[in-house]
Amino acid sequence: MAQLTFREAIARGIAQEMRRDESVVFLGEDIGAAGGVFKGTVGLLEEFGGVRVRDTPISEQAILGAAMGAAMTGLKPIAEIMFADFFAVCWDIVVNEIAKSRYMTNGQMTFPLVIRSGNGGGLRFGAQHSQSVENWAMMVPGLKVVVPSTPEDVIGLMAASIRDPDPVIFLEAKALYSTKTDVPDGEIVDTLGTAKVLRSGSNATLVALGAMVPKALKAAEELAGQGIDCTVVDVRSLVPLDTQTLLREISATGRLFTVEENPRLCGWGGELSSIVSEEIFYDLDGPIVRITTPHIPLPAADALEDMAIPSVERIVTTVSKSMNS
């Protein structure tokens, strides 16, 4: 057992899989010699060398195109898109090429690749380096979407993503990079498509993702002080979605609150609400409430950004008001 930061867990997860499988290669901007702009890939170049860990030009289409071509011919590439906002400049390769080609070719091709990216706000970077894009990825048939919230999950879900034969968008909440927790020694391998119940309560279920998970946990503590006993579920994987766990935990309390960093419209909570309405409507004791970033580009100023992204205070107030109305 050792204390590990979220950013250190990224390098450990990648290294674990690169040691195990020679066909795993890693490419991206500043990932090698610089160790990543967020220092998430420190030590990988030194351990695995410049043939397997390759710095690239600022060419996102080339990075993901190369990952796709390598994956279809037997390698297992991990590609980094530095900021998730930059998916917009290479989205064609992601949605038209990588996501569709297995289906279009009637299963002739397989794309065992992982695209990891720094996602979301909280760092005062302004609108073009702060967006949470999990809802972009979730709506594309053919992509798996994974969003860890703890260092241990980073390692385990990274390993599961690399071993998975399908393309995985692996979104790392930038706001969590410096968080630190105990992580067991040895190999860690998790399972995609599994949500995790982090706290069990009887009054309401808070379902959160990525950087919203620690906030939901904190809010649940405060709500407990007000006599509102909350379950907290970490979604972890949007595709595949662990609806069994989610529906069970929502049914058990009869109330659903989603805590989402993505802008409001078409956020993952909207899809979850729809599933809940169709399948367990009569288990609900009150309205589904979505707590999201408003439908705005994220502002840079700390004061403004803090107002935009769901805060512990906003979660507490929203849940409390709704439960007491």
């Binding site: 993901l64 195109g65 071509g69």
Partner: peptide
């Protein structure tokens, strides 16, 4: 144009292997 980088990836794979 999308397949030019993809062809590069296949070529990279051949080079690597």
């Amino acid at each position: 144009g999308a397949h030019l980088p993809i062809a590069c990836g296949a070529a990279w794979s051949a080079q690597f292997r």
